[in-house]
């Protein structure tokens, strides 16, 4: 049996008294595409942000390729104790954000080469060549010299995906990648994500888009109030929801 790429065990996260995650576990093997669904406030975004330590869980383990992230402190003071380990995790898990978060002072191409050069220390020429190839791949090869604000939302999100791929990550994390987009622009981004899934890219996707979840994921997790309510192959879970909450959630999203 191979080691899972990413394993989250019994993750607890609270903001003050508000418990957002109440013991969630998740395992992503190489090539898995895991979709996280659930209503707002269910904790799905918090969970994916815990995966690369943008949020620190107060309890629970994060294992990247079998290696557990070291923590120090307790409760709200719990912090990762090894900066190099955190950097290793983050450079191997590329995050794509709902609001794209392209660096606004850099051109699209500069956005894509920034972390490979600054963080990974790759040679500039090589980084540029790879960035151009990735921009071509996501269909905005002609936009490299434009600034993010000059692009449509769909183009910005595809640029953000190219930025993520430029890290040559072990897995991609998507935090509601299509939620800020019009249906038309959404389709451009979905096509890119589908292409990545076909290539066997390991992905964890937080989404509101049931169609995206059904089409690309091989495992679907329904979160409700900080716990996993139901999970399994997307077709099974979406077509034959067992829990009443998921049934309610699905009928609400269909309307």
């Amino acid at each position: 049996m191979t080691t899972p790429v990413l394993e989250l065990n019994n993750i607890h996260k609270a903001y003050g008294d508000l418990e957002v995650l109440k013991g969630v576990s998740l395992k992503a093997n190489k090539g898995d595409v895991i979709a996280l669904i659930g209503s707002s406030g269910s904790g799905k975004s918090t969970l994916i942000r815990c995966a690369n330590l943008l949020e620190q869980p107060q309890q629970g383990d994060i294992l990247f390729q079998g290696e557990a992230i070291q923590f120090k402190g307790q409760g709200h003071d719990r912090q990762p104790s090894d900066a190099a380990q955190v950097r290793h995790l983050r450079t191997h898990l590329s995050m794509v954000f709902q609001q794209f978060n392209l660096w606004s002072h850099l051109s699209v191409l500069e956005n894509v080469i920034e972390a490979p050069i600054t963080v990974q220390g790759r040679p500039r020429d090589e980084a540029i060549a790879e960035a151009q190839a990735l921009l071509d791949k996501v269909g905005i090869g002609d936009k490299g010299d434009r600034y993010p604000a000059e692009l449509s939302g769909g183009q910005q999100q595809r640029a953000a995906i190219a930025r993520g791929l430029a890290m040559q990550p072990t897995a991609m994390l998507f935090d509601e990648p299509t939620s800020a987009l019009d249906p038309e622009l959404e389709a451009e981004v979905v096509r890119v994500i589908q292409a990545l899934a076909k290539e066997g890219t390991t992905m964890i996707i937080v989404t509101h888009d049931m169609k995206l979840a059904r089409d690309v994921a091989n495992h679907l997790i329904f979160l409700h109030q900080g716990v996993i309510e139901e999970q399994g192959p997307p077709a099974d879970v979406l077509d034959h929801p067992k829990s009443e909450r998921l049934q309610k959630f699905l009928s609400a999203t269909k309307a």
Partner: peptide
């Protein structure tokens, strides 16, 4: 903050995120 959080998410340390992202964006 989203700009700086993204820098962290891509593995930049505090100094890199300051020099590469915060400082150049601050001027405007």
């Amino acid at each position: 903050t989203a700009q700086l959080e993204t820098a962290r998410a891509y593995g930049m340390n505090a100094r890199q995120s300051f020099v590469r992202i915060q400082l150049p964006q601050m001027w405007i």
